[in-house]
Amino acid sequence: MFKEIEHTADYAIKVWGADLSELFVDAAHGMNALTGGEPDRPEISREIALEAADPETLLVAWLEELAFLMEVEGEMYSHFEVLALTHTALWIRARGGLATRVDKLIKAVTFHNLAIRESKGTYETTIVFDV
């Protein structure tokens, strides 16, 4: 689950998940929603493997990977299967297609006040994007 929240200059979303996997997947859906775009027929599949020093850096690396694929390859991913996820490593299968109707590119995923919090079985975080 995600919700867009107010930011004077850029975009921000708050994301909730029952576990870390859901948080990562919904963060991707939230970022996709900010762009206004959607993939055409989901014909492209990629396996993405990333490592980072901590969960927040891993989350930024994951979203940056998707933003890079959108800008450089014109690809957008909408279906995700988390194959493995720890606090420092992510292995995920993503399915999508060529991005259509995009009216906003994500320039960057920031670390601004970024912290993944877990409380009563729910993970949540707020992510600010430079647009």
Binding site: A53, E56, E64, V109, F111, H112, N113, L114
Partner: peptide, 24 residues
């Protein structure tokens, strides 16, 4: 360039013992 170095510097601040109020 900015994204690469903001990410790389997450470790640099640990190395140089720099305490910050915001990871950005």
């Amino acid at each position: 360039v900015a994204s690469d170095y903001v990410r790389r510097f997450q470790q640099a601040v640990i190395k140089y013992d720099i305490r910050l109020p915001d990871r950005e």
